[in-house]
């Protein structure tokens, strides 16, 4: 049965905040920096517990990335916190030279990613961040789907040596990942086994994909459901195996189609296992103001859109 128990509702950024506090307790080298968004990033608990290991940088994200790179020289494990837009596009060159090319153990933690930031509009709704970060050699890119997975991911990256981009969001969403589900960087979570169509989802689209899969299964269509939380390095093996079995693939993400999960899955399939593919994501467009729900509907990121994509791709099978 494709059945995931919803155990509550919370924002993924709170999962980050809880994970950061726990990581700080486990390892005295964990330090945190924030660019004037402590409350938004849920970093208050860490600040309260470890004030001497917390660095307020003010509204100066470029400096924050550099200071974080420097803190690694001396053995610290810095976690930077700001919105996804200011964590990537605004500071791309700082990340490129001082962190990625220099191989620094910095954890770039980015909240309010994507359309679900809502009313603030397109200036803050970054939909290109996964692409930018994934292009950087040596960068690990993770986009967890609920509170539990974000907390687990935060703890996992603290133990992982190397630069990481961790992307999460603002709205409260269902909690459905079991709290004891192991989080392995670079390893897909195979949520449900099926034979007719593969659905591969990341971030907030994972729950939408669950709802779509339930609808498809109710119609007798067997769904292979895969959660890709680590977009880079991509678990190509899991994707190719599933595609070989179902012969039809759908991807779903809260990001541009160009440069996101869909692009990367398409690349992997084209090289290893050419398979009919449909992609759910934002199609070369900026966002706009609105409630998260309105925006997800307008830009085609609802469970109905994943469902429709699955029907289309099944029709493409010979």
């Amino acid at each position: 049965m494709l059945n995931f128990e919803i155990t509550g509702s919370n924002d993924t950024r709170s999962g980050f905040g809880a994970g950061l506090l726990e990581a700080g307790k486990r390892n005295p080298n964990v330090v945190a920096l924030c660019a004037d968004l402590i409350g938004s990033l849920k970093m208050d608990a860490f600040l309260k517990e470890f004030p001497e290991r917390f660095f307020q940088v003010g509204i100066a994200e470029a400096n924050m990335m550099g200071v974080a790179a420097g803190l690694t020289i001396g053995g610290k494990i810095p976690f930077t916190g700001t919105f996804a837009n200011f964590s990537t596009g605004r500071v791309y060159d700082q990340i490129r030279q001082s962190i990625a090319y220099s191989g620094k153990n910095v954890k770039i933690c980015a909240s309010h990613a994507g359309l679900t930031l809502g009313e603030d509009g397109a200036t803050h709704q970054i939909l290109e961040d996964v692409g930018m970060m994934s292009m950087l050699p040596g960068m690990t890119v993770i986009n967890p789907c609920d509170y539990n997975q974000t907390k687990a991911a935060t703890l996992a990256i603290a133990d992982f040596e190397g630069p990481v981009y961790l992307r999460f969001g603002r709205p409260k969403v269902p909690i459905f990942v079991p709290a004891d589900e192991p989080f392995v960087i670079g390893k897909a979570w195979h949520m449900h086994h099926g034979k007719d169509v593969t659905i591969i989802a990341t971030g907030h689209l994972v729950w939408k994909a669950v709802e779509a899969a339930q609808q498809l299964e109710a119609e007798g269509i067997s769904v292979d459901l895969i959660n890709i939380h680590t977009i880079k390095p991509l678990d190509v093996d899991a994707i190719v195996k599933s595609a070989a079995q179902t012969g039809a693939v759908v991807t779903a993400e809260e990001h541009q189609l160009i440069g996101g999960l869909g692009s990367m899955v398409a690349q992997a399939l084209a090289v290893h296992q050419p398979t009919p593919l449909q992609m759910v994501g934002v199609n070369d467009s900026f966002g706009e103001s609105g409630t998260p729900e309105q925006l997800m509907k307008k830009y085609g990121l609802e469970s109905q859109d994943v469902y429709a994509a699955a029907k289309r791709v099944i029709a493409m099978k010979k």
Partner: peptide, 30 residues
């Protein structure tokens, strides 16, 4: 660059304006 492992180098530089921030982080780590 640190990329090729040359002893004595602790961060890449060349794109200007970044070294002071990195040094400040290293100073705080100290």
């Amino acid at each position: 660059t640190t990329h090729e492992g040359l002893p004595g180098i602790r961060v890449a530089s060349g794109s200007l304006g970044q070294g002071l921030s990195v040094a400040l982080g290293a100073a705080q780590a100290k």
